[in-house]
Design a protein around this nucleic acid. Structure first.
Lengths: 229, 229
DNA sequence: CGGCATCGTGTCCAGTGGACACGGTGCGGG
DNA sequence: CCCGCACCGTGTCCACTGGACACGATGCCG
């Protein structure tokens, strides 16, 4: 079945930059392409937008199909539409930006047999299309956003230690933070619930676990509170 | 001539939210639609993306065609793609956000005879499509961005008084600022060139004129300086 | 020459951000 | 059993910044 239009139309895709946090490293999810163009190259997961689904739905569907994962945090990043960005013709891609708790996701085999894997964001293979640019844009956004919105928690397990949280910020922001100042500030916000539990299976003194209180944050947000690292 | 594709494709448009600053009021540029759907309704200037032009080029072209204006500041805002946002079928629009010096632009008659006019952003007529949502998104972006990037100057004439600048911020941010603190802060950044001129044709003591020093800002920016109101 | 509208300027205080070090605890190895 | 190691958890001080706050100067107009 074919479709005919009076004027030529670009194809529209969505691509997703999915970040996850491994012990001490920020990862991005990539898919190995099976077909031309760029067969064999790694690329961001994505695909064509269907006529009846919203852009965000398309992004979620592609993530589910290509990597079997669901994410709580998904937001639109930027739309890339340079005329020559895809050798097959005019393809405009709406890029999305997602955060997942890496610990909770064992990557499923992609349904279409393409391989999916996590790579350190600081050391990715050469990417297909303009995906390196998309990734760079996403990293920049993450770096900017993490400081004034509490989205970092989406990368951690539900229960975490303050050291884990601090390492997260240090990794994303690419600079070291002072432990005492960091704790003072984050605890002063009163957004963390102190649990009566400590981490397990560590060969040294175990740290206390905390949980991010989403409800309290929503309340404070309404009251004009601004999260700021 | 017609164009045929194996799978259906959405149409892709760009729409522009153009802000200008009138004495004491923030304005947005609207175009009155001449044809269905929404004939007679006001809408954001925009149109279909051509196959050989980038998204940003399309936005600039539409602004030139529909309102005869050029802008220095143009940035991508957000992409709207809800399946039912256009009654003609699936249309995805990439929204752009522009700032112009209102004083320098007398609106040209639009080439296609549609009427163009400036409206107060706080009091627009009912808009076509989901353009009210697009406008709201743009306003939010402007409000957020004006505080940490020196884009407000794009709305003012090249030479301006500190009171004009302060009124700009008060208008955009919708709150009053203290004159002394405002001056202290903005002058401390050392981004304004103090001119040996004062405003003309005022019936009271004339204020000194200043000019924004783009070059100095670029330099400071490279050195890690952050503009912040 | 007086009135009016706006210009232009400085101080003080409270709160915040950032620098900075050490004793405590729990595990593991010898 | 004891020691060492690695990490946990905590408080002070100071410099700077943001925000509150008022009045004399200037220039036009009537």
């Amino acid at each position: 079945m074919s479709h005919t239009y009076e004027y030529p139309r670009p194809a529209v895709t969505v691509d997703c930059v999915v970040f996850g946090l491994d012990d001490e490293d920020l990862k991005v999810l990539l898919i190995q392409r099976g077909v031309e163009p760029y067969a064999g190259r790694w690329a961001l997961p994505g695909g064509f937008v269907r006529m009846e689904e919203s852009l965000e739905d398309a992004a979620r569907r592609e993530l589910e199909e290509e990597a079997g994962l669901r994410t709580s945090h998904l937001e639109q990043l930027y739309t890339f539409g340079a005329p020559e960005r895809d050798p097959r013709g005019r393809v405009i891609t709406v890029a999305y930006f997602a955060l997942v708790k890496l610990s909770a996701h064992h990557l499923q085999a992609a349904t279409d047999a393409r391989e999916a894997a996590w790579f350190s964001v600081w050391d990715t293979p050469k990417l297909a299309f303009d995906h390196a640019e998309v990734l760079a844009t996403a990293l920049q956004r993450l770096k900017g956003k993490v400081r004034y919105q509490p989205i970092g928690f989406e990368l951690l397990p539900p229960k975490f230690t303050l050291s884990q949280l601090q390492r997260l910020y240090e990794t994303v922001l690419e600079r070291e933070l002072d432990k005492r100042n960091f704790r003072k500030k984050i605890l002063a916000m009163d957004l963390l619930e102190e649990l009566d539990e400590v981490e397990q299976d560590v060969s040294h003194r175990a740290a206390r676990l905390y949980r991010f209180d989403h409800k309290k944050y929503k309340q404070l947000e309404k009251a004009g509170f601004n999260f700021e690292l």
